[in-house]
C-alpha cells in the first residue's frame, strides 16, 4: 500500500476542490492506503466546526470527521487559521495544528502528492 499526501490551498466554500479531495482521500483510505491532508491558506476554514449543512453549499465538517475516523491524518496551518479568526477550540477535534514543515515532512514520505493550489 502507498502513501498519498494531499495539500489543499483553495477555498472551501466557493470551489469544489476540497469536496473532490475528501472523496479521493476517502477512496484511497478505503483501499488501505495511508493518506495525509494538509490545509493552508483559505482551505483552513474547512476545519471550523459547527458548519450548517445547507444543500446549496459544500459541507466539510462531516466528511472531515469521517476521514479522521478512518485514520487519515489531517493537519492545518495554525497561522492561517488564526489569521481567519479560527481558534483551536473552534476547530474540528482530531485535526492537528502545525506549520509548513509538517507538509514537507509528509511529502518526504509520500509515494504520491496531490497539491491543490489556491485560486
Amino acid at each position: 500500500m502507498g502513501t498519498l499526501t494531499i495539500g489543499c490551498f483553495s477555498s472551501f466554500i466557493g470551489s469544489m476542490n476540497l469536496d473532490f479531495a475528501f472523496k479521493l482521500a476517502s477512496a484511497a483510505a478505503d483501499k488501505g492506503h495511508k493518506v495525509n491532508i494538509w490545509f493552508s491558506g483559505n482551505a483552513t476554514t474547512v476545519t471550523k466546526k459547527g458548519q450548517k449543512h445547507l444543500k446549496d453549499y459544500s459541507h466539510g465538517e462531516t466528511p472531515l470527521r469521517e476521514l479522521i475516523e478512518k485514520g487519515v491524518e489531517v493537519c492545518t496551518c495554525e497561522a492561517c487559521n488564526l489569521a481567519r479568526g479560527i481558534q483551536k477550540p473552534d476547530a474540528v477535534e482530531g485535526v492537528q495544528w502545525n506549520a509548513m514543515q509538517w507538509y514537507l515532512a509528509k511529502i518526504y514520505g509520500s509515494d504520491r502528492v496531490l497539491h491543490i493550489g489556491g485560486e
Binding site: 506549520a99 509548513m100 514537507l104 489556491g118 485560486e119
Partner: peptide, 25 residues
C-alpha cells in the same frame, strides 16, 4: 492571490523540516 506568499513560506520551511525527519533525510 495568497499563492506566491504561501509558496515562498512553504519552501522556506525546508530549513526546519529536519526536526520531523530521520537523520540524513
Amino acid at each position: 492571490s495568497e499563492n506566491p506568499k504561501l509558496a515562498i513560506t512553504h519552501a522556506i520551511a525546508y530549513q526546519v523540516v529536519e526536526i520531523l525527519l530521520e537523520e540524513g533525510e
